[in-house]
């Protein structure tokens, strides 16, 4: 641990002692803190395996939504595709007939990369196919969804309940079990 890191930590401590205000809140609105429903966003869906070119509304009111922000340059996102696929096969549009909810689970992966100038929609489709994607994949071209979720990293996985309230969100790799648990919680199982 270097000198500057200690200085930084000391600085943090000093800020704490100064005691102005409560915990440092960053990046504005945190959907997890106020329990408000996330607004609906209309995103461009992409032509890719399991996905049709058009528009998709997310989150869908009335169903649990599993939303993953990703990027094609992101290695962890690649590895997350396998467990996401397994959970999708189990709980996605074809699979789930919940006892208490009886509804579907909306699965959606969203890249927020700038598309069209260097990285293209075809690049995303190729990536999607190479990693066995088979559900809807969309683009957050204007970063509105990214901003609303205050997503500062990818992969960023979010579960929303049927009222579109964020009930769980985490960055990084997740196993099948780690993904299933918050989804079932949102389903009320």
């Amino acid at each position: 641990m270097g000198v500057h890191r200690r200085e930084l930590l000391a600085g943090t401590a000093a800020l704490g002692v100064a005691g102005v205000g409560a915990a440092v809140t960053v990046g504005g609105w945190n959907p997890l803190e106020d329990g408000a429903a996330l607004a609906e966003f209309e995103l461009e869906s992409l032509e890719a395996p399991g996905s049709e070119a058009g528009t998709v509304v997310v989150p869908e009111r009335g169903s649990v939504t599993v939303l993953e922000l990703f990027a094609t340059w992101c290695g962890v996102c690649e590895r997350l595709m396998e467990p996401m696929g397994a959970v999708y096969d189990d709980l996605g549009e074809r699979g789930y007939e919940g006892v208490s909810q009886g509804g579907d689970v909306q699965f959606l992966s969203v890249t927020n990369e700038p598309l069209g100038r260097t990285t293209t929609r075809a690049d995303v489709a190729s990536w999607w196919e190479a990693h066995d994607g088979r559900w809807t994949v969309a683009s957050d071209a204007d970063l509105e969804l990214t901003g609303a979720l205050d997503a500062t990293a990818v992969p960023y996985t979010v579960v929303l309940d049927e009222a579109n309230v964020v009930t769980w969100s985490e960055t990084g790799y997740k196993s099948v079990e780690e993904l299933r648990e918050p989804i079932f919680a949102a389903l009320g199982e």
Partner: peptide, 17 residues
């Protein structure tokens, strides 16, 4: 920025690199 006064105090005091 948020909490600028504290950041400035830390910076001027040598606590922020």
């Amino acid at each position: 920025p948020d909490q600028y006064d504290m950041l400035r105090e830390a910076r001027d005091g040598g606590d922020l690199a």
